[in-house]
Design a protein around this nucleic acid. Sequence first.
DNA 1: GCATTGTTTTAATAATTATTTAATAATGGA
DNA 2: TCCATTATTAAATAATTATTAAAACAATGC
Lengths: 112, 112
Amino acid sequence: MMESAQVVKALAALAQPTRLATYRLLVACGPEGMMAGQIAEKLNASAATMSFHFKTLSHAGLIERRQEGRFIYYTANFAVMNGLVAYLTENCCGGNFELCNEKNVNHFNQEN
Amino acid sequence: MMESAQVVKALAALAQPTRLATYRLLVACGPEGMMAGQIAEKLNASAATMSFHFKTLSHAGLIERRQEGRFIYYTANFAVMNGLVAYLTENCCGGNFELCNEKNVNHFNQEN
DNA sequence: GCATTGTTTTAATAATTATTTAATAATGGA
DNA sequence: TCCATTATTAAATAATTATTAAAACAATGC
């Protein structure tokens, strides 16, 4: 289980429009990822600005980099996102099936 | 589907230790929620500070309030959290089953 | 060597954020 | 009606944080 400080850092990293768009783009790209320059182009941001945002996302563990020739590819780190979601939804309704399934609405409980 | 600005607001609201703890506490409480004063006590924060944080979380749509006598109960809004997670994980691996299921590791694709 | 690609640093600016104290509001019981 | 309880709001302060551009720096491969 992730710890609070790590989750706060990840949430703060995603709480910015360009970084949120970057992350979603990388999620959609899958394991292959996308080149830094191409991401900058897609999001209409300068390379320097993107570098700053990449650093923030990397520091939070949300993305990873991979060098191929002279290009740098970024990919989403799916494990960290899964950990983040698990942390947020942990122990939903105290694990009480009755409450969590109330009115045919499931909340976050995996058992439903 | 939620829009980017709304998601950014929700993520920013959660990206603070006391508010993150508040939200998780309310998720665990389920539909009944918890009284404002009890939350403040549990988290060792003053009523005024908590009121500020409640407002931030409410404004982001993450929690809701309910008055009972002279007490105010707060509850987690599960729908907004589900929307937030859906937004973050949308179109994982471009919806490509092969990629998303690579190496027996599922990412976010619901179809897996 | 040189063009390309990307990162880091610097610096200036701008905006936000959190906290406390004190005042205000609303409720319900005596 | 008066008072204790509960919670929000306002004001002031302090601290933090984020953002971007420009320029220097580094690495790659032809």
